[in-house]
Simulated scan of single mutants.
Amino acid sequence: MILANGTFSINITKKIPEKNTIMIVFDISRSMLAEDISPSRMAVAKNTIKSFIAERKDDKLALIIFSGKAFLVVAPSTDKAGIEAFVENITPEYILQEKPGLSGTNIGDAILLAKIELDKITGKKNIILMTDGSANVGSDPEKVASEIAKSQIPIYTIGIGKKDNNPLTYTDLNGQKNFFYDANGEKIIGDLDDELLQKIAIMTGGKYYSAENISDLQNAFNETNANISNNEIEEIKLQKFSLTPILLFLFFGILWIESIQRRKFFQKYQLLGTIKK
């Protein structure tokens, strides 16, 4: 308790949920339109991300999208509805991947950008990385993960897509099924780098999940949701109270008591005077 300037202060301690900042790093390369997970990898991923966002009521969330280059599209925010609406509208066209330097899978620069943004804030921080490919452009993901580990930011990695080596297909705007082709005209099959994603997760204290179907993906986010806990922490606040109301109460209370005592005294005096007469 502190007394000063007509006030007294006390420390009030209460337990509150510890807030997290969660950076979702989302691969939106064209292969995410593949339909090996129906209706498509991207559609299933977006729905699962939105469900996860809705679960994190006390946290800030942010979003990075990437293909050959990474972009922060939602800074850390508690506006869950706004983030969900943004996720709902994401397509591969958000990044003009036909332009030089914008195609590919730039995992290294994507998680590096996540670190740069998270280093600007305090509190618990986490990264969720979702991709269906292997790093083929940009920074070395393992070197970046090593730096992120020093900041004690876990990365939960999710590799999405079947591992059956069948050529990937998508449905165009005319409803026609098409194959994905590489620059050499060869049909593209899944090239998910499980080993890299496992290394990134282990190095940073996160966990790797392989998602070959909707159930796998939902399980990955459910477990990640549980791992990113909201532990209770003690919050101490200095609460100030003014002494003025208390002093006024005491002052008028004393006056009231004195007035009663005086009234009783005069009543007694008058009574004695009457008896003497």
Rank of each mutant, 00 (worst) to 15 (best):
A54E: 12
K268E: 09
K19D: 00
S51T: 15
Y269L: 15
T157G: 08
E223T: 02
I49F: 06
G253M: 00
I233K: 15
Q218Y: 07
E98H: 11
K162G: 03
K187I: 01
F8Q: 05
L96F: 06
Q267T: 12
I148A: 09
I257P: 01
S40M: 08
Q261A: 00
G205C: 10
E186M: 05
A211T: 01
A54L: 09
N165M: 05
E93T: 09
D119H: 08
M130R: 00
I158Q: 05
F265R: 12
S146A: 15
S210E: 13
Q176F: 02
A75H: 07
M32S: 10
Q218P: 08
F26M: 04
D172K: 11
K277H: 13
F179Y: 15
G123H: 03
G175F: 06
Y181L: 14
I83T: 13
P100H: 11
I128T: 01
L192H: 00
E235M: 06
P92L: 04
I214G: 06
I22C: 04
N136R: 00
G104T: 06
N178I: 02
N89K: 12
E55P: 02
G253D: 05
T204G: 11
A75D: 12
E258V: 01
K268A: 15
L192C: 10
K57C: 01
Q152E: 14
M203Q: 11
G138Y: 07
T78Q: 06
S139P: 02
N213D: 12
N225Q: 08
K124S: 12
L192W: 04
Q176I: 13
D172M: 10
N219K: 14
S103D: 13
I116T: 15
L238C: 02
L129Q: 04
G273C: 13
I257R: 09
Q218S: 14
S259V: 02
I111R: 06
Y209M: 05
L3E: 11
L197R: 05
M1I: 15
N47H: 01
